[in-house]
Nucleic acid binder design. Structure first.
Length: 423
RNA sequence: GGAGAGGUGGGUGAGUGGCUGAAACCACAUGUUUGCUAAACAUGCGUGCGGGAAACCGUACCGGGGGUUCGAAUCCCCCUCUCUCCA
């Protein structure tokens, strides 16, 4: 969430920038937050004053008792009780006001970086560049959902039986190719200085709030009611929450973590044409990279992460393009996001395989993730993450782009990981 | 699943109703001193919020929540986590 002090000091700027995100109630919500904050502060001043008085009297009662001045002590008790009652009301009022303010702040999205283009939807994203040659085919080009049946490497029907739609079963060379991709991605991340972690894939409510999935987007997560837990939609949540309630030292930077996890998304309300095959699943695998950065250097870090993703796509020899997300498409929590899409030869369209974002202090503020700068001053750190990479659409693109009359050619870099050269 | 013990500041750990935001030690920081290293000594050293230009002041926080009391780390209730023993 945004820092209320920042909102107060930069009200017009915040409202202006939120409009780039098409946040309709910007003016109203910002004003409400500022008003609630003002109330909160006057209430706290009143409360502190009241408690201070009541504390003083309480202390004097102890002294009077010790000196044997019973009558005076009794009188003081009556007075103290009165004060303490009044203070209790203020304490409650303050708590309510704080909750109101927090709820208001939860509703306000991150302000977009000034490079974020205006726009309504994904159609308005800015295409930065395209790289790699789209494969050309003379004969028939099969979509991956036909190829996986032909070579019997992924079974949707079986997934239906075991779980339901969107939970495919990878089989034989399909399963091994998946594992190869995961290992390749993890090795590349390790080589780039990321420390590998294996986090839990169930998270509690505090973690969901920390990275911004909760309170509003819980409809996108699977929830385990009985235990009050959620199944992760991305490894971003458990990895970033490693640093919840942490005060780092400046020399701890850079912090780089990577993890492979399955990801689970309910994808509520995303019925449409692009749900076929591997295009949209409820469970999929992903290697995620996360960095906690010094605020002065976080945009260099963002570039570094982008370069990492680009290197992966180039190693896999997939034609891809880089997009800068517009205000209408960028997520609630991000300040700046680059998407990577790979070319799908049979579907003749671009498929998103990675999203690399800088959240600046938006998550850090929720996480209470800070660091002490060279002057021992506490400052909010910046958090960033990116997919490196999400597997299913990479797999789809490899299958479609690399198909030939003999089968499917495995990209060179994956062959040592797979143990075979083609499917 | 049953029984017990326990969660105190970065760490160890004292503290059973007021003088305790919290002893002591360790770690850490700064300074003094000895030729360097090391040691010794001195001082400082939690977090949030409010006020203040700042020094600093106020307030809250001893796993979480609630209660008793003029006053709670300390007493009571619920929850949670950890450890030990048993099944």
């Amino acid at each position: 969430m945004l820092d209320i002090n920042f909102i107060r000091d930069n009200k017009e700027f915040v409202i202006e920038r939120l409009k780039v995100k098409n946040f309709g109630s910007a003016e109203q919500d910002v004003n409400a937050a500022i008003d609630t904050d003002a109330l909160r502060r006057t209430t706290q001043s009143q409360q502190d004053e009241m408690l201070s008085k009541s504390k003083q009297i309480s202390k004097s009662i102890g002294l009077l008792m010790r000196d044997g001045k019973k009558d005076e002590a009794e009188n003081a008790k009556v007075e103290a009780a009165k004060l303490s009652d009044q203070a209790k009301d203020l304490v409650n009022k303050l708590r309510e006001t704080e909750e109101d303010l927090r709820d208001l702040l939860y509703k306000i999205p991150n302000i977009p970086h000034n490079e974020v283009p205006t726009g309504k939807s994904e159609d308005d994203n800015e295409i930065l560049f395209e790289k790699g040659d789209k494969p050309t085919f003379t004969g028939e080009v099969k979509p991956h959902w036909d190829l996986i049946e032909q070579y019997d490497i992924i079974d949707f029907e079986l997934g239906n039986k075991i779980t339901g739609a969107g939970f495919p079963v990878y089989k034989g060379k399909g399963a091994r190719l998946q594992r190869a991709l995961v290992n390749f991605f993890l090795d590349q991340a390790s080589d780039a200085g990321y420390t590998e972690v294996q986090p839990p894939i169930l998270i509690n409510e505090a973690s969901g709030i920390g990275t911004g999935q909760l309170p509003d987007k819980d409809g996108q997560m699977y929830r385990i009611e009985r235990d009050g837990l959620y199944v992760i939609p991305t490894a971003e949540v458990p990895i970033t929450n490693i640093y919840r309630d942490v005060i780092l030292d400046e020399k701890d930077f850079p912090i780089r973590n990577c993890a492979f996890t399955p990801c689970f998304r309910r994808e509520a309300g995303s019925w449409g044409a692009d749900v076929r095959g591997l295009n949209r699943l409820h469970q999929f695998d992903k290697v995620e990279i996360v960095q906690v950065a010094h605020p002065d250097r976080s945009y260099d870090v963002l570039d570094e992460m982008c370069k990492h993703v680009e290197a992966l796509l180039e190693a896999l020899q997939l034609p891809y393009r880089k997009l800068k997300l517009c205000g209408g498409d960028i997520s609630f929590t991000a300040a700046l996001t680059y998407d990577y899409e790979v070319w799908s030869a049979a579907q003749q369209k671009w498929l998103e395989v990675s999203s690399v974002s800088n959240f600046e202090t938006y998550q850090a503020n929720r996480l209470k993730l800070r660091f002490k700068d060279e002057n021992k001053k506490k400052r909010m750190a910046h958090t960033l993450n990116g997919s490196a990479l999400a597997l299913p659409r990479i797999l789809a693109a490899i299958l479609e782009n690399n198909q030939n009359e003999n089968g499917i050619a495995i990209p060179e870099v994956l062959r040592p990981y797979c143990g075979f050269e083609s499917i």
